[in-house]
Design a protein around this nucleic acid. Structure first.
Lengths: 117, 117
DNA sequence: CTGTATCCCCGTGGATACTG
DNA sequence: CAGTATCCACGGGGATACAG
């Protein structure tokens, strides 16, 4: 794990770009929002979908996202207790941006594999 | 400057999301790509468009972006010498993602100002 | 199952000064 | 004008162990 991705700073407060990037900030954050855009997920499900994230970081990101109003947390009265996270309406507004990022990334990956052959 | 934005790590190499985010990584990087998406820009122009970035960080980001193949650098034989940066074809592929981010951010900002009144 | 508590490394980015 | 050279503080995130 050598390539670094994003540090949390808001270079231009009040700027559209920063407004959105601030919500996507934090390692794993876009991945988590992407997972949750497909429906509510439990803690362990998010761990399975992101194999190399540690519990500490996962719970950290989830707390951040909740604090920013991007996701909601619901404790289910099951046994053993489980917790479900899902996007808020604010969180859902991020989906177009996330989708665009995924689409661009997919196209770049396709080109890579095409070029290698 | 308290809000943190992005640290450069690639949590899931080979994943579309990471493929794209890796190119957007680094503080100021999306802003710079956004500036360059409107045409070639000189070093000092980029500084003027991003008032709080320091020369060290700006030249660092530009070197990173060049190394990733996102932008190209051209030294113009003027006097005094000037340097022009512009997006490569790879860099232009990022525009849809950046545009999406800006659009989402703009909508969120509009909502904020509407709610405050 | 869903987290929290420590410890620690190191990259990032700011400040400042200097150069061709 | 277009950078480079240092120095430094900060905090994010990994590893590991533990807890309700």
């Amino acid at each position: 794990m050598s390539l670094k991705l994003r540090k949390k700073v808001d270079p231009l407060p009040g700027c559209p770009m920063s407004k959105c990037m601030a919500l996507l900030s934090g390692l794993w954050t876009p991945e988590l929002i992407w997972c949750l855009s497909h429906g509510a997920r439990r803690f362990s499900e998010l761990q399975r979908n992101n194999p190399t994230i540690t519990a500490k970081v996962l719970s950290g990101r989830l707390r951040d996202l909740q604090a920013r109003g991007v996701i909601s947390r619901a404790v289910l009265a099951t046994s053993p207790p489980s917790v479900e996270y899902q996007l808020t309406s604010l969180g859902m507004e991020l989906i177009p941006a996330i989708t665009s990022i995924v689409e661009v990334g997919s196209r770049l990956l396709l080109r890579d594999s095409a070029g290698e052959q």
